[in-house]
């Protein structure tokens, strides 16, 4: 058992302050264990989200000593204990209470994404796909929606006004997943360039560094997307190829028109 001070942000949208909780840590404990103990013994109203406690649901994201982490996967023995362990809510999202933030921005951006539109199945009514062709998409589908990549992304972390027209890394991997999906027919490239702010990303790879699933967000999603979007806009050969080959993908306008009235998920406010 080691002594440690947990310095946890308490407050709501009106403001707040850090509160210190001296506690003891047992072998193998993660930050979430300690937060739970504080909740059970000292501060039953300490707000935090969690579900699986195994790095699979992405609920317990917080900023630990200044960087986004899942509280359930951060072992206390990896943190220096001479100084207080500082736990703050994700900065990019409005605070609801304590460590809980309003992440509805991400759900809104998911709603604005033109959905998966598969081509017709084979004669037996099912699809055939090769493992190698699904693996690119599977990398992105590992995403647990912890939103830490969104939190760390300076395009919206430091510029609230960008949120209206910037989907963010979590959604970029979703766009890339669909872009590389063997069955999808929607073309979302123009939308990505014009309304989802792909160009704002200047490839600092902060998102990749914080991803708990180790998804190569920048290298495998954002950079290839940028290339494809450029091809779609400026490459006369690609343009001609599309004309000649009569691409079956819907145009961006068709894809975007799928949802004319974007409607947010109810954020229970």
């Amino acid at each position: 058992m080691a002594d440690v001070v947990m310095r946890i942000w308490r407050g709501d949208s009106e403001g707040g302050e850090f509160q210190d909780f001296p506690t003891q840590v047992s072998e193998g404990e993660v930050v979430l264990d300690v937060v739970h103990r504080i909740q059970a013994e000292d501060a039953p109203d300490l707000a935090c989200r969690w579900n699986c406690k195994a790095g699979k649901c992405g609920s317990c994201s917080a900023e630990i000593n200044g960087l986004p982490h899942l509280m359930c996967m951060t072992r206390m023995d990896t943190l220096p204990t001479e100084e207080p362990v500082v736990i703050a809510p994700m900065k990019t999202f409005p605070i609801i209470r304590d460590l809980v933030t309003d992440v509805s921005f991400n759900y809104e951006m998911a709603r604005r994404l033109p959905p998966f539109a598969p081509k017709d199945p084979g004669p037996d009514g099912t699809y055939r796909m090769q493992q190698i062709d699904v693996e690119r998409g599977q990398e992105f589908r590992k995403c647990i929606e912890c939103f830490m990549c969104q939190d760390i992304c300076h395009v919206i972390r430091d510029h609230e006004e960008n949120k209206e027209h910037y989907a963010g890394p979590r959604l970029f991997i979703r766009y890339m997943e669909l872009e590389s999906h063997p069955l999808d027919t929607n073309d979302r490239r123009e939308l990505l360039r014009e309304e989802m702010g792909l160009g704002y990303c200047n490839i600092t790879k902060c998102c990749t560094e914080v991803c708990p699933e180790h998804i190569k967000i920048t290298d495998n999603a954002i950079i290839p997307l940028k290339e494809r979007v450029v091809d779609a806009s400026y490459d006369p050969v690609a343009w001609l190829g599309r004309k000649i080959l009569r691409r079956t993908k819907k145009t961006a306008t068709e894809a975007a028109n799928h949802r004319t009235d974007p409607k947010p998920v109810k954020a229970s406010q």
Partner: peptide, 8 residues
């Protein structure tokens, strides 16, 4: 601690 997001 009030009614808003109060786990207790």
């Amino acid at each position: 601690g009030g009614i808003a997001y109060n786990p207790g």
